[in-house]
Amino acid sequence: MATLEQGFTELEPVLQRHGHQAHGLIEVLNRAQQLYGHLSKPLLRHIARQLHLPFSRVQGTASFYHLFRLMPPARHCCLVCTGTACHVQGAAQLLAELKAAPLAELGVELGSVRCIGTCSGAPLVVVDGAVWNHVEAQAVLKQLRELER
C-alpha cells in the first residue's frame, strides 16, 4: 500500500495551485490528510521536497496543529465536544466514562474537540462527522456498538 502511494500524484493540483511555494504548506497538509488519511513520514518528505522546505519545518508545522494526524486513524472516530456549553452540561464526565469503555475493540478512536458551535445540543459528540445531541455515555456506547466494524 505504502509503495503504491509513493508517487502521491493526487497532491499535484494543490501543489500547483500554490506554485510549489512554502506558504501553501498548511493547505497542502490539509489536502494530503484528506487524500491519504494521515501524514506519514514518506508523505511529509514528499511535501517538503515539493515545497523546497527543510524537513524539520514541515514536521514542526504538522505537529503544531491539533487536526493533523501523524498516525493512521481508526475505522471510526468519536469526538466529545469539550466546549464551555458542553462542559457545564457534563462533558468531562461523559469523556471520562467513554475513556473507561473498551472503544478500541469497536474500532473507535476517542478524542475531544473544543466547540463545534452547535451548543444548543450540549452535551454532544461528533461521530464520523455526524453530530449526536444531548447524549449520555451509555446511549453513545450503545450506538457506537451498532457502527459497522
Binding site: 456549553a85 462542559h87 466547540c115
Partner: peptide
C-alpha cells in the same frame, strides 16, 4: 477562526 468555546 471563531475559537471561543460556546461562541458561534
Amino acid at each position: 477562526d471563531e475559537g471561543d468555546p460556546g461562541a458561534f
